[in-house]
Design a protein around this nucleic acid. Sequence first.
DNA 1: TTGTCAGCTTAACATAGGTTAAAGCGGTGC
DNA 2: GCACCGCTTTAACCTATGTTAAGCTGACAA
Lengths: 250, 250
Amino acid sequence: MSSGLIADLQPVEAASALVRKLGALCLMSEEEIAFMEGLQNNVLEAEKGQDFIEDGADFRTTFVVLNGWAIRYCLLPSGRRQILSYALPGDILGLHVNFRAKATYSAAALTRVRLAAVDPRRMLEISQKYPILAAGLSWCTAREFAILGDQAVRLGRLGAQQRLAHLLLELWHRLELIGKNEGDLLDMPMTQTDLADTLGLSLVHINRSLMGLRKKGLVTLHRDSIRLNNIDALSAMAEFNPEHLAEFSI
Amino acid sequence: MSSGLIADLQPVEAASALVRKLGALCLMSEEEIAFMEGLQNNVLEAEKGQDFIEDGADFRTTFVVLNGWAIRYCLLPSGRRQILSYALPGDILGLHVNFRAKATYSAAALTRVRLAAVDPRRMLEISQKYPILAAGLSWCTAREFAILGDQAVRLGRLGAQQRLAHLLLELWHRLELIGKNEGDLLDMPMTQTDLADTLGLSLVHINRSLMGLRKKGLVTLHRDSIRLNNIDALSAMAEFNPEHLAEFSI
DNA sequence: TTGTCAGCTTAACATAGGTTAAAGCGGTGC
DNA sequence: GCACCGCTTTAACCTATGTTAAGCTGACAA
């Protein structure tokens, strides 16, 4: 089928999403890259909707998201759910699980997702042997904090349309960093129920707010994606601060 | 409130709430204890209300709270404030600041507070040289995540009285671990305006909710403290999960 | 083709919480 | 002792969001 010319070969993803992400942040040696890739050999797959971390259960594995989306969430005794954050390709779940006995949140696959399972002791090993990688992981941690902080700001101090716009902008910027956006078109694998549980609103009000943004011409809705028609206007109305997700500078 | 510059802080003598906290979690060698104590030599003092970390500013110092309370918060362009978390004695602010150029939140003294300023490179040094300490710090990080996650749950999925009760229980449990509670009496250095900005409510509604909890006999209000009359009943009504703050087990 | 099902949309009505305003209350400085 | 000031408390009224309920739509399978 192939003509045998090198030029005909399909470019293969040269590196895992995590290595590409870290590579965008700091200059890694061949050895460091090899080590990080080696960490991700134990690959698991979770079906859409499947839980792979459970709040309160023993939790001694670190997961790296290879592709697909996952959510971190808490379930309350009353049955209400709060989604804490979205995990995108290259994100790490349970980076600081180390010796903590129990998970403090659950995680589930939002789409079919491929995960690398890593022994957290190997993550500690990184800190001891590879200072550059350690700095990169530390940056990932700081970023996770900033993302969760922004989530608290949305929930505490923004109105419904603002919350929606703010979340869409966060996801758009994060996908931008890992090169998974097509212009201003944003992938939307989550349902409106998921959005409601993320933004502390009811399903009905999520729909109202989405229609409100559409009526203002700020977004265009598609089946599994959403177009951000005016990122500047959205950022202004949502009081969004992209600095919190800003790229690395040494 | 003030200029927020580190240079404004008053230098005073050293102490070590953090070593006591870590000591409760893991067995440290003399050398490790000495190292941790040595980190906390550069002591500063912040007046009540004084900012010492500013969102967006260059941020290359890690702070250890020696005594007093601080808050982490974000200010929105509209002027609204969201308090993200309370920092108590032994807590670390900016543990993962490392090479991240800018702070993604502000921090201010809620009471007069004594802080140890640490070069974040020395925190990285810990990971390389002292595995036990590194595990302890990793535990601190995981705990901060759990606390911030609980804050998101409060804001997203609890009613006003539940949010209040949930926050009071969190603080009570955290103070319990560092031995700063007197029975069920909880220190309350924050104003009702602070509570409002923590819980995503208005000042008036915070007061209504507080009165509601009092009317139910769940709390007794004092000038600068609050008595939790029935921790079990409070935990049940707030759907509070103390496991998220549980103590260490190796 | 048709039935089913998950997810989306809309409407009518209910309520938790916001806003504004004003009074009370306990320190602190003069 | 008085005046001020930050903080708390309460009341009256308003609005954003929740709830319930009912169609709607498109995908998929029999």
